[in-house]
Amino acid sequence: MTSIELRGVWYRYVGSNDWVLKNVSLTIEPKEVVVITGHNGSGKTTLLKIASLIYRPTKGEVLVGGKEFWSLTEDEKLVIRRKVVYVHEKPILLRDTVLGNVAYGLRVRGLSNDELLRRCKEVLEELGIWGLKDVNAYKLSVGQAQLVAIARALTLNPEVLLLDEPYAHLDMKKKEVLTKVLSRRSVEGMTLVIATHQKIDSTELRITKTVTLENGEVVNIYNYK
């Protein structure tokens, strides 16, 4: 199972002199449920994108399973990236149907159409949106789009799933459904990292760690164990 360790990570965007993350160190162990909290602009999204191996830190190291990710070869990076999946706060959907969108990650992994359909159906039914499978993704409401983006990640059954504000656009009913689905995945062994400024039911989701960010710095790490 994959652990992700951020060691003394600093990050600033190209062309900016301001540090978005300052000396952040954090370890995400396998099967953990980590919640990252903080105000808007505190660096939650950037932290998540670094932990998701999308952004390369300006300074510091990202160790995956003990290996420094950014020193690996492209092939080695790809193998690891396929175990770590990130879902954006603002859902990014492709010009395709819901099914086409949800199947994308499976397609890039070269799965057969039958297997692809089976896994998409399973997840879409779990989230209660199988009925939307043939709908043009651009015609969805923001809440539906967010569920589709989450479904796309869940079909890949990653070892680590990082979700940026997954509840932001969902109504109460959809929030409950999502929490149940995430809870089930967590019990099955999936590592979850959730960035949010909303309250999460810690009993349902069995949160193991809460990380609080402020102005790009980790100000508190609370371990539930």
């Binding site: 191996l53 999308i54 954006h88 994308y104 990640a153 890949l156």
Partner: peptide
């Protein structure tokens, strides 16, 4: 947008480029 998305879903460099071209075609 799509570069990040494709990377986060485990696409290879070629698959990332293909998605970018496809989505920006219009």
């Amino acid at each position: 947008m799509y570069g990040e998305l494709a990377l986060s879903l485990g696409a290879s460099k070629t698959q990332v480029m293909t998605l970018i071209v496809k989505e920006s075609l219009p």
